[in-house]
């Protein structure tokens, strides 16, 4: 482990609860009903950088904006809905449209100038190198 996890726990408490609910449902069986939704964001980490994957289907890259400030990552954007033509009957409308914003607290500060973002098959992938200042410093101990 190269970071402390305390800061992430509070932010993801609801996701953790939903996951717990899902596991409980799986163990004890239950109805075929849908379980709650969870934010579809993955964060992977190693000593020198992070990888973030967010599922954002149907968003044009030009309508997406990623910003990083210290250890705070924000992805915002807008998804435009298909406006049905006249005389079209709408049976279901479940796909979310409009503005969205998703903030995440990262385990350590990243270098915002070196962040790389790609969008493929509806998944936004971010490569975030660790900020030099946040890298752990080894302190030499001398025998006194």
């Amino acid at each position: 482990m190269y970071w402390t996890t305390n800061s992430l726990v509070a932010a993801d408490l609801y996701d953790e609860l939903r996951r717990f609910q899902r596991e409980m449902g799986r163990i004890f069986g239950g109805s075929a009903a849908e379980t709650a939704s969870a934010s579809a964001v993955n964060v992977w980490g190693r000593e020198d950088g992070l990888l973030v994957e967010a599922e954002l289907p149907g968003v044009e890259p030009k309508d997406m904006h990623v910003s990083v400030q210290g250890d705070q990552l924000t992805v915002e954007g807008e998804r435009t809905a298909d406006e049905p033509a006249k005389g079209v009957c709408c049976h279901r409308r479940e796909r979310a449209a409009g503005k969205f914003i998703h903030s995440l607290r990262l385990p350590y500060e990243v270098d915002s100038a070196k962040v790389k973002a790609t969008y493929r098959h509806g998944v936004l992938r971010l490569e975030l190198p660790r900020a030099e200042a946040s890298k752990p410093q080894r302190i030499a101990i001398t025998a006194g």
């Binding site: 899902r22 449902g25 799986r26 239950g30 109805s31 075929a32 009903a33 849908e34 379980t35 709650a36 939704s37 969870a38 934010s39 579809a40 964001v41 967010a54 599922e55 954002l56 968003v59 992805v75 954007g77 998804r79 298909d82 709408c90 279901r92 409308r93 479940e94 796909r95 979310a96 969205f100 998703h102």
Partner: peptide, 26 residues
């Protein structure tokens, strides 16, 4: 909502240990 997905339990379960999601549909 844009970054969420909904999981469901199917009547015929998947043999593999992978979650089954209901895609939001228009």
């Amino acid at each position: 909502k844009a970054v969420q997905k909904t999981e469901r339990r199917e009547v015929a379960e998947l043999a593999a240990d992978r979650p089954v999601y209901t895609p939001a549909t228009d």
